[in-house]
Design a protein around this nucleic acid. Structure first.
Lengths: 138, 138
DNA sequence: TCTTGACTGAGAGTTACTCTCAGGATTTAT
DNA sequence: ATAAATCCTGAGAGTAACTCTCAGTCAAGA
């Protein structure tokens, strides 16, 4: 059994955030000790991990809650959960691809800067040189 | 020259968001027509694109603003901009890797669901089956 | 003329944190 | 033994980045 601090450390979230999630009902099975301290089992830890994964891929806490609630309802909801997970994995793949594209754009820009550094002061894309294009400024 | 609507369409942002960014001073060189309508040049469009890329990789608007302001100061700031861009590209690569890991985790979970569907009702990881682990519920 | 699309500023609402406060319990150091 | 450090709690304020609505203006096109 893990304290919230330990859990935070393992899954790389702040204890604040874990408590925040707990408050939202995302970990419905957590037990407490005699001092009301949350104790996370390995199963709870798996929940925290999947919640983190769903957040990282961009699912809203509201939708994560729905998914968790379905989990709590047992095997009758397996098909529904499958559909949700399938949609999320697809969406996540698309986002990943888009993030990759944007990353490439920045990496390319970085190359221009590197060239500029090597060649001393040379004109660089993205760095506006032409003051005459400015017509109004606030 | 493009209107805000056209720009939004090209870079895949809402006109709302483009105006929001403009208000924050992220596109300092935009010209206006005689009716005060924003007209984006190709250079401005490049700005919008790089702002989008920086946002997508997770840079705050505050830091993007700083970067843009450096751009406006001309070639004297090339080295500084290079450092910023380098740091951002590195950070972005790390985030991309992390997102990829989380995506894999979900994809693996999806496989369990697929197995469960094929085998009819079978126990699935992440889907708690053991009511006896529940000690308290709010 | 009337719809469409652009603009303005102000401001409210939302999501997901993120932090601060006040307070209580337990462990560790002196 | 007492004090400091470290854990925890709940309540609630603050923040970032949208996101949208309202109210009102202006101008071009069917």
């Amino acid at each position: 059994m893990y304290t919230i601090q330990k859990v935070a450390e393992i899954v790389q979230l702040s204890p604040h955030t874990v408590r925040f999630y707990a408050k939202k009902g995302l970990f419905p099975r957590i037990t407490r000790d005699q001092h009301n301290v949350r104790l996370f089992s390995n199963k709870d830890l798996e929940y925290v991990e999947i919640v983190k994964a769903l957040r990282t891929t961009g699912m809203s806490l509201r939708d994560i809650k729905k998914y968790i609630d379905l989990c709590e309802q047992g095997e009758a909801t397996v098909e529904q959960r499958y559909q949700i997970m399938k949609a999320e994995v697809d969406k996540s793949a698309a986002k990943l691809a888009e993030s990759h594209r944007q990353h490439e754009l920045l990496a390319e820009k970085l190359k221009y800067y590197q060239q500029a550094r090597l060649k001393g002061e040379k004109q660089i894309m993205w760095a506006p040189q032409h003051r005459w294009t400015v017509f109004n400024e606030d």
